[in-house]
């Protein structure tokens, strides 16, 4: 019996202790405070006891309020699952997170270049080039780029054939370097164009094409337009040319964009359609135009006949200008300053 009593006592004590612990750690509030355990924050929206906070017990009141709030936070933190790492107890936190403004705006993905867009539409995939390839002429492995590539190229192309359509005395090596440089320049231009497109900067069209060939009207117009704008004031103070109207830039046509062809069958069908269209083409008959043409011809014929008849009874041709009754007025044709005559004074 004595043992049982002792056990009972111990159990009671333990329960009491537990109760005390629960009492000391539990906090009751009218409105439960909002907890953000991941941010370690508590928002207590209960009304404050303002007269107490004005009086001398201000600090005590603040401390007790803060203690309650932190106690609630600690209690919620302890309710989360625990983890033991390196002999220390860690708590796995979860819950809502407080939304704070960012320091910098959300990064925007880089816009695709013209080629990347095309490749994506067409479904092209990048093929990995081998680092070096076997050359049958030199009988050795040659790197595709980089160290020893240029030397190998030099060794391989020590002589170059002059094609038939070129003057026999042209330096093909110089030609080769020239084309290479042009390629590099073109590449750079395309790169810059991509950069401009990504930053939404308007790039003027390449205005003046090579002058050796005969230019089309539209090309000439473009060139004139660009020349007009290419002043320091962007053409603001440029005087108008006599036929300025024609120089207005045309609006780009609203062409329907064609979908890139995906497979060979489709491409073949497309090309066949074009070919059939050409073969089966019939000349269109514009009736009003044809009728007008007919009328014009008839009229002109009649006029001719009339004139032939008139020519026989032709009278003296008189010019009204010389026989007008009015007196001639001076200074009508000339506008502006009177022209100085005589010696130039300096």
């Amino acid at each position: 019996m004595a043992v049982m009593d002792i056990i009972k006592e111990i159990l009671e004590k333990d329960e009491q202790n537990k109760n005390i612990a629960a009492e000391s750690t539990s906090v009751s509030k009218l409105i439960p405070p909002e907890c953000f355990p991941r941010d370690l924050m508590v928002f207590d929206t209960n009304e404050l006891n303002i007269p107490k906070l004005r009086g001398p017990d201000k600090e005590k009141e603040l401390l007790s309020l803060t203690r309650d709030c932190t106690q609630i936070l600690i209690n919620t933190i302890l309710s989360f699952p625990k983890e033991i790492k390196d002999g220390k107890v860690f708590v796995q936190l979860s819950g809502p997170s407080y939304n704070l403004p960012r320091e910098k705006p959300v990064p925007v993905p880089k816009p695709l270049t013209k080629w990347q867009k095309f490749a994506q539409d067409k479904g092209l995939r990048k093929k990995k080039k081998p680092k070096s390839t076997w050359d049958d002429v030199l009988q050795k492995w040659i790197p595709t780029y980089g160290y020893r590539k240029a030397a190998a190229e030099k060794e391989k192309n020590w002589v170059l054939e002059v094609p038939q359509n070129v003057h026999p005395n042209t330096d093909m090596f110089a030609e080769k370097t020239k084309t290479k440089k042009e390629n590099i320049a073109k590449n750079e231009y395309q790169r810059l164009r991509n950069v401009a497109a990504s930053r939404k900067i308007k790039v003027p069209k390449v205005g003046i094409p090579p002058m050796e060939t005969n230019l089309h009207v539209s090309q000439l117009k473009d060139a004139a337009n660009i020349a007009r704008i290419s002043t320091a004031s962007i053409g603001k103070f440029q005087p108008k040319l006599p036929e300025e109207k024609h120089l207005k830039q045309r609006k780009p046509l609203n062409r329907q964009k064609k979908r890139p062809l995906l497979n060979t069958d489709e491409e073949k069908q497309f090309n066949m359609n074009i070919a059939e269209g050409i073969v089966k083409k019939k000349p269109k008959l514009n009736i009003s135009k044809a009728v007008n043409k007919q009328i014009y011809e008839e009229q002109s014929q009649r006029n001719k006949e009339k004139q032939e008849k008139k020519g026989k009874k032709r009278k003296n041709f008189t010019n009204n200008k010389f026989h007008s009754k009015k007196k001639p007025k001076g200074q009508q044709g000339r506008v502006g300053k009177k022209k100085n005559t005589g010696r130039k004074r300096r």
């Binding site: 941010d39 370690l40 404050l48 303002i50 936190l93």
Partner: peptide, 30 residues
């Protein structure tokens, strides 16, 4: 919001109780 931005540091998913050392309280009175 500004005070939180100023004093709060990164969000944490794991906490160790000994790392909770101090409280900053803001109370609005008058």
């Amino acid at each position: 919001n500004l005070f939180i931005d100023l004093f709060h540091q990164q969000e944490t998913d794991v906490a160790h109780l000994s790392n909770i050392e101090y409280v900053i309280t803001f109370a609005c009175v008058d």
